[in-house]
Design a protein around this nucleic acid. Structure first.
Lengths: 167, 167
DNA sequence: GGCTTGCTTGGAGTGCACTCGAACTCGGTA
DNA sequence: TACCGAGTTCGAGTGCACTCCAAGCAAGCC
């Protein structure tokens, strides 16, 4: 049922893996730090720093001591990027990663952490959507598309009066 | 057409104004710094700092030098809070406020700034919603509600394989 | 051999947005 | 009069998340 024979099974590029981190990750250490930096949007500095503080497990090395990242590293980076996007602190990401290292016994703890984070994300989306309508209103106001101070029926006047600090 | 006579027209409280900054703001300086702190969620320290750096115009003072905020100050604070929520930097908020001080001639500039910010907010919402589905997937995974490695038809396997760092 | 490029390290530095401290003033009350 | 609590000032400090630096190494090329 896995990969049909006629599908080429070459190793995927760094960006391919990072942008679409699905399936069983290949464990071949083969991506250089600059490839991973380009794919992830993080700097090489930041990638080394993530490893130093323990967000990434020690990365494999080529002869000469250079880092070679495998697909599993990219999977983790991609997910950490998602968590960071939600506003999760590095300290909390570390907590999550430490749990992941402790294996199945932390499934429930991890689930709870993610459920809490999901709630925060939902709240954040709601806040942003409320902000969006304030921005819409202000933009229309500046474009002169809102007849001001005429008794237009029930027009939203959010933040009217903030425009000019005269008086 | 304005305020019918039978509607009581007492001055609104600090929280009322901050939470619902609509209509022409009253210019009576009457809210203490701790009231504004409670209503806005900012600390008194931060309110003074906002004024020091110019995000707020110099606030009126009671005899004795204590600050008394008016409704217009609260309107501005409420809108600044919205901008901050979008991730706008204090430096950019300052730019916006400086434009507002220069009056009508900056309407177009301000509109453009807000349009750009609106685009960022939309992008941010999209990112967060994508993250939400990743979180949903992971949460289900941890709850054991996803039959792993069985050939379930086209199940999303985002980030599968990131769970355990064994191997 | 000499040069360039890309990588290595640990520690120090940066920028942001607050956050706090210390010393002081004011108005009210027991 | 003594004290309290809420407020004042400005400069300094904090925590976070990078970001950079200097010195060095290894491989590849002219």
């Amino acid at each position: 049922m896995a990969t049909p024979a006629h599908v080429e099974s070459r190793l995927r590029t760094c960006s391919e893996v990072f942008d679409h981190p699905v399936g069983e990750p290949d464990r071949t250490a083969r991506h250089t730090i600059s490839e991973v930096a380009a794919a992830s949007g993080l700097t090489a500095h930041t990638l080394r720093w993530y490893e130093r503080i323990g967000l990434l497990d020690p990365v494999d090395r080529a002869a000469g001591g250079q880092r070679r990242y495998c697909d599993a590293d990219l999977h983790r980076l991609a997910f950490l990027g998602r968590l960071r996007l939600t506003g999760m602190s590095v300290a909390d990401m570390l907590r999550y990663v430490d749990m992941a290292r402790r294996g199945e016994q932390t499934y429930e703890d991890r689930r709870q952490l993610l459920v809490a984070q999901r709630e925060e994300v939902r709240q954040r989306i709601a806040d942003l959507q409320a902000t969006l309508s304030v921005l819409d209103y202000k933009i229309d106001l500046y474009a002169g598309r809102i007849a001001d101070s005429t008794g237009a029926p029930a027009v939203c006047t959010y933040y009217r009066g903030e425009e000019e600090q005269s008086a």
